[in-house]
Amino acid sequence: MLELRLTQAGLLKKVLESIKDLVTDANFDCSATGFSLQAMDSSHVALVALLLRSDGFEHYRCDHNISMGMNLGNMAKMLRCASDDDTVTIKADDGSDTVTFMFESPSQDKISDYEMKLMDIDSEHLGIPEAEYQAIVRMSASEFARICKDLGTIGDTVIISVTKEGVQFSTKGDIGTANIICRKNTAVDKKEEATVIEMAEPVSLTFASRYLIAFTKATPLAGQVTISMSYDMPIVVEYKMETMGYMRFYLAPKIEE
């Protein structure tokens, strides 16, 4: 028996909207730790890791570890039927091949339930080692989204270079080149506009623009994004959800052949 109650359906809607275009089908794993997902995109270049901590839910009952295979597009369709301020309850009986999403309006005068078919997904689970990254950048999530979108219109790849002074995003395409430097800056009006650099040594890596753009669909989840890089490691683009957990995107770099 599984029963998870979350007061803000809007959060779950944003989570689904941010990954449904990158990953088609995925297993949601439910354990005492929380409601989590790990999945690769179809070309095995990017990986999504989501954790919604059990203590972030209003009610969390998970009698034993359970893995539920879902089509994320279909799940997103069902969640779109909820209002952002609805309470959502995710329910599944042991051995059932369906999951139920129940939405309750804040005044309790409208209650809907949507039953969705589960699917068997043969997915590979990867071990992600705890790593010390050579460079970590925290910056405005919406600024990062803007940069990825802008550079994506010029070139297919983005070089991200971190130095003590700041982070540089560069691209090159048929029509020309572009460079954006964001200097470290903590003297800002709003905390989320700060650019903070933690760096052991400078790092410069090349990534496919379209994946970075896809990750920025998670921008509504957080004011800041954390970008972690090391040589010969996938970049981590992380959106932390206050009190609930995180959405992490891993992307393998491109290398000179």
Binding site: M40, S43, H44, V45, A46, L47, E124, H125, L126, G127, I128, P129, T157, T206, A208, D232, M233, P234, Y250, L251, A252, P253, K254, I255, E256, E257
Partner: peptide
């Protein structure tokens, strides 16, 4: 030419 690497070449299956 930049060659795209795969996630599976960094993280191993569990």
């Amino acid at each position: 030419v930049n060659q795209q690497r795969h996630i599976t070449s960094f993280f191993s299956k569990t």
